[in-house]
């Protein structure tokens, strides 16, 4: 094989790789926030119920 030192253009794969990274991380962070909020709401509701009963 000849030693050809032309750098291949792999910019697209670079973009795809990091898009996946940021996308999944964002989704996970959002899911953390949403789940935390829902739990908080549920806790308040349950505390109300408990105080009534």
């Amino acid at each position: 094989m000849m030693l050809q030192q032309t750098t291949p253009d792999t910019f697209n794969y670079f973009v795809v790789g990091y898009t996946v990274f940021f996308l999944v991380m964002t989704v996970y962070l959002v899911s953390l926030v949403v789940r935390y909020r829902n739990l908080k709401k549920e806790l308040e509701l349950l505390e109300e119920l408990e105080n009534e009963g």
């Binding site: 030192q5 750098t7 291949p8 253009d9 792999t10 794969y13 670079f14 990091y18 990274f21």
Partner: peptide
Amino acid sequence: PMERTMGLVQKVFYFHVAT
């Protein structure tokens, strides 16, 4: 720097290993 034989995609490596 950009790796010469693989191009930009080599940069995926940093976060790939870290994750």
